Amino acid sequence: MDRTMIGVTALALSAAACTIPAHAADAQQKSAGKLPDGRDVAVITLTAHNGVSARILAYGATLQSLFAPDRNGHPADVLLGYDGLASYVDHPNYFGATIGRYANRIADGTFTLDGHSYHLPQNDHGQSLHGGGHGFDKVLWQVAKVQSGPVASVVLRHVSADGDAGYPGTLTATVTYSLDEHGDLGITFDASSDKPTVVNMTNHAFFNMAGEGSADGALNELLTIPASAYTPVDSHLIPTGEMRGVAGTVFDFRKPHPIATGVRDGHDPQIVIGRGYDHNFALDKGATPVPGLAARLTDPVSGRTLDVLTTEPGVQFYTGNFLDGTLVGKQGHVYRMGDGVALEPQKFPDAPNRSAFLSARVDPGKPYHHAMIFRLSVR
């Protein structure tokens, strides 16, 4: 049964619709090596009975690999990244990492909350990107819990001090990776603060459903994004505040079509500004209490299909435009633009400075929660 054809707005609905015998999923913890300061870094492998497996590094709470079978049962790692811990430390590029405190960009590295201005590191041409250069992707997370069972999981925990990277409030954050017997990889982000603050967490996996390092990259894969509008950006990739309709543009992915058809279309100024796609899509579903469909990516040759589900209102679609052949990834593969694509569920970029966007504010007693799912299947 192709579970992507079943309603994707809730895990409970898909579980009820599929009659599949229960099988245990396995979780195993080992050491991935040590950081330069001598601290040991755990790596946890989650394995389901159907051939899906995920490898999670405690450094950056990073999804290092995700293996999925094709229509003939042959597994392949569908994530860009590195083979060893040292490269994640020495050559960071957000591959599979947990992003926080604030994913995406905040204009001029500044926002105001309750009359107080907060100034963040400006690590992206005067903007603050993905936490300001030393965000959650560059810290060693504590392994709080590892368990096997019908759902194999690992819980990772990090405490970000008041004033860390300029953000107010001591923030206690957890990331839970969970792999069920069907091969659904859930990622849940939770955070609480002792002061008003802003939070926007996501995972920054780069996908190639043909398999990492495939000769043709990911641009010929079929993408669907159920969004009637996106947020165009200025020359610094900051949203202008406009909600622009996708109809009649290269941003219309409401029906599946190859990424390659629009990624180099210089007739659209937004593609020129982004050097390809690097834009937030306003999902038609909006923010939801249970994860709903944000994107679907299919490799027509292997049949491997990824559904990205989220409770958040937006998804950033990024075609790896700044991958320029200078990074050597898994198995010695040199990564170039389009070798993988990111689909990052999130609040909208620069929401702390845009009152029309859904607020990213988190208050004491009102914790942050974001649930997302990477659902793998074959078509």
Rank of each mutant, 00 (worst) to 15 (best):
A260T: 12
D184Q: 11
G217C: 02
A247F: 13
S228L: 02
I273M: 03
V199S: 14
P196A: 00
G211L: 14
V199W: 11
V198R: 04
T261F: 14
D216Y: 10
Q270R: 02
N200W: 10
R275P: 05
D216K: 12
D184M: 12
V246W: 09
Y277F: 15
G248D: 07
A227D: 05
M209L: 07
A260G: 14
L223I: 09
T197F: 12
A229L: 00
A227S: 05
V246A: 09
V263M: 06
S214F: 10
K255T: 11
L237P: 09
G274C: 15
G241E: 01
Y230P: 03
D234E: 01
D252P: 13
A229I: 00
D190T: 15
D194R: 07
A227L: 06
H236Y: 05
G274A: 15
S193I: 00
F251D: 07
P269I: 00
K255P: 10
F206V: 13
K255E: 13
A227R: 00
L237T: 11
S235P: 03
G266H: 04
R275G: 13
K195R: 06
D252A: 12
G266C: 02
F206N: 13
P239L: 04
A205H: 08
A191E: 09
T240D: 02
G266S: 01
S192K: 12
A210P: 11
F207D: 01
F189Q: 05
G211Q: 10
T202F: 09
G241A: 07
I273S: 05
I273R: 02
L237I: 15
L185W: 00
P239A: 07
G274V: 03
H267Y: 06
P232G: 01
A229Q: 04
F251R: 01
E212H: 08
I187D: 01
N200R: 06
G245Y: 09
A215Y: 01
M243V: 04
R275T: 10
D216A: 11
P256H: 03
L223N: 07
M201N: 10
F251G: 08
L223G: 05
P256E: 08
P196L: 02
S228T: 09
S228E: 00
D216S: 14
G245M: 11
T231L: 10
D234I: 00
L185G: 02
I225D: 08
V233A: 11
L185A: 03
S228V: 00
A247L: 14
G248Q: 06
G274Y: 05
A260H: 11
A260I: 15
A227Y: 02
A229G: 06
I238F: 02
A191K: 01
I225N: 05
T249E: 10
N208L: 14
E221Q: 15
D184T: 11
A260E: 14
G211T: 09
R254F: 14
S192L: 08
R264Y: 13
P239R: 00
V246N: 07
P226S: 15
T240I: 07
